[in-house]
Design a protein around this nucleic acid. Structure first.
Length: 426
RNA sequence: GGAGAGGUGGCCGAGUGGUCGAAGGCGCAGCACUGGAAAUGCUGUAAUGGGGUAACUCAUUCGAGGGUUCGAAUCCCUCCCUCUCCGCCA
């Protein structure tokens, strides 16, 4: 959520910065509601002040033994009743304005950072660096991962459709073990990098999804449980960031680093034609996620470090990748700045997203009310929140199945994974 | 699912209709004491929103939402959550 004060004080600047996202935003309804709300608030608080005063006066008189039926007291009570009637009219009006204002604010995305390249779509993302050309596979006949996976008997898409629906998969035998090995490998690496592991709930409530920004705008992207206000998480960013919702943290406890392995669930509404085969776009997938809550002064540096924590996994696995900085048109709803890491997928001759590392600044912290207090400083400040995949496990598996594919149709196991899997070839 | 207890400031905890934003303690900050520190003593210490250059000031907030009342942390209703016991269950 954006700072209402900032919108009020610098509306044109906010407007211009939002506009970089190649979408149209109109702040006038917000400004109008804000003005009306504050006018009402002034009137209301004046009435309330008088009402409080009357209450105190009556209290004093009763204590000093006045007759409760005396004219003086009856007159005060009368005035109190009149004020109550007026307030009964004003209060709902103001509440309504506040709700409307809040609803509009919750729909506004974050402001892109000044350094974020301006662009309309993913086409204009900027490549920051590339790594691992020497590990590009030399095998000229690489099958797509879903084909080799089915050949090896470790991926079963057909029966997953029967059991659930399309865009689900069964990992079978060594396939399941490989997924497990990858999860453990990633968690081991990230905990060594300083992230405290959490195994969080994967069903969360509405407030949590609102806190991180999936609700209210992207409700159609999540699976909701009928009969309960619980939703399947689209990413562990949601439970991890919301761990500290409505808390005032001690500045000394920052930064807080967490990582988690969770399954993630996405409805993928509106992506019907895309990536219909393979592990790339499933309704359920596994991911190891990193989340940081940091002091605003350090968030830029923490963001770079988080990106390194993500790419370190690919380097250890010797999978070629590139890093992109997302342009304003492709930037996520809550992000100020975002790096995507893309891994090489030989079967499609393309790099594909395997991690996304975002710095949200105080956008989520304001929604989720996550603040910190610095000793010696008055009041509280919002933390900055960051999140990144470390990494998407299924996509890592698909990258291994392709990049490590041998001419004889076998697949080598990356060296660092061999101790986890107990074998060197699939 | 059934029965009971409870949810108060950064934390613990008192408070059953009136000057309560809330005793006391912990923590934190400042001052005194000290060569320096510890201990001790004194003082201060909530958040959010509005108005004001500021000092300051007004309002809201005692799990959430309603109600009673001139006035609610306190009384009534609904809901949520936590704990204990029972039932069910991996």
């Amino acid at each position: 959520m954006l700072d209402l004060k900032q919108i009020r004080e610098n509306p044109t600047e906010v407007q211009n910065r939002l506009q970089r996202r190649s979408d149209v935003y109109d702040l006038t309804p917000i400004l109008d509601l804000d003005t009306k709300q504050r006018e009402l608030q002034t009137t209301r608080t004046q009435l309330q002040a008088r009402s409080n005063e009357i209450g105190k006066l009556i209290g004093q008189k009763m204590k000093s033994g006045s007759d409760p039926k005396s004219e003086e007291i009856l007159a005060l009570k009368n005035e109190g009743n009149e004020i109550k009637a007026q307030l009964a009219d004003l209060e709902p009006q103001e509440k309504d304005l506040k709700t409307q204002l809040e609803d509009l604010l919750l729909e506004l995305p974050n402001l892109p950072s000044d350094s974020t390249p301006i662009g309309k779509s993913e086409e204009e993302n900027v490549e920051v660096r590339r790594w691992g050309d020497e590990y590009l596979p030399t095998n000229p006949h690489i099958l797509p991962h879903w084909e080799i996976g089915e050949q090896l008997g470790i991926l079963d898409f057909k029966r997953a459709v029967k059991v659930a629906q399309s865009r689900f998969v069964n990992l079978v035998g060594v396939g399941a073990a490989l997924e497990r090995a990858l999860i453990n490998f990633m968690l081991d690496r990230q905990t060594k990098a300083g992230y405290i592991e959490v195994l969080p709930p994967i069903l969360v409530n509405r407030q949590s999804l609102t806190g991180t920004g999936q609700l209210p705008k992207f409700a159609e992207e999540s699976f909701q449980c009928e009969g309960d206000d619980l939703w399947l998480i689209p990413t562990a960013e949601v439970p991890l960031t919301n761990l500290y919702r409505d808390e005032i943290l001690d500045a000394e406890h920052l930064p807080i680093y967490h990582c988690a392995y969770t399954p993630c669930f996405r409805r993928e509404a509106g992506s019907y034609g895309k990536d219909t085969r393979g592990l790339i776009r499933l309704h359920q997938f596994n991911k190891v996620e990193m989340v940081k809550l940091v002091h605003p002064d350090t968030s830029e540096a923490e963001h770079e470090k988080m990106l390194d924590n993500a790419t370190a996994i690919l380097e250890a696995l010797k999978l070629p990748y590139r890093v992109l900085e997302l342009c304003t048109g492709d930037l996520g709803f809550g992000a100020v700045k975002c790096y995507d890491v893309e891994v090489w997928l030989p079967s499609s001759g393309k790099y594909r997203e395997i991690s996304s590392c975002s710095n949200c600044w105080d956008f989520q912290a304001r929604r989720a009310n996550i603040r910190f207090k610095e000793t010696g400083k008055k009041g509280t400040q919002y933390v900055h929140t960051l999140n990144g995949s470390g990494l998407a496990v299924g996509r890592t598996m698909s990258a291994i199945l392709e990049n490590y594919q041998q001419e004889n149709g076998s697949v080598k196991v990356p060296e660092v994974l061999q101790p986890y899997l107990g074998r060197s070839v699939l």
